[in-house]
Amino acid sequence: MYTVNHNLKHVAEEFMANPIGHHSPELQRVLMVFRGEPLKGKYVLVCTKPFKEWQLATLTGMRDKPIKLVKGKVFNSIEDAEREVFRLRWKKHTGHELNL
């Protein structure tokens, strides 16, 4: 299986510059791993103020109560939320902080 390693920092830089849209094949490969994570614990955004504010949350995998808000992770732009989730997943998959 393909795994993400910390040497792919140039790929992370590409993501930070444009989190949503055209991506290089190398970045797409990383995002398949990140976005293909299992349902339980997966990050989602809860829209708290339409078009203005989103809070990070994780999914529980339980149909009756599927969402758990992550305290303090509130964003005014979806792109910034994407960047933060990318950092969190980078740490989880590579074991390294992504200082971008």
């Binding site: 349902l39 989602v44 149909r63 109560k65």
Partner: peptide, 26 residues
């Protein structure tokens, strides 16, 4: 949106959950 594993891959971005989806879950 909150129940299907493939949603984020399908969307190509974080899945956005809205109040009606939270309500329906319960």
């Amino acid at each position: 949106a909150p129940n299907a594993q493939f949603m984020e891959l399908l969307m190509g971005r974080l899945v956005e959950i809205h109040p009606w989806e939270e309500y329906l879950s319960g």
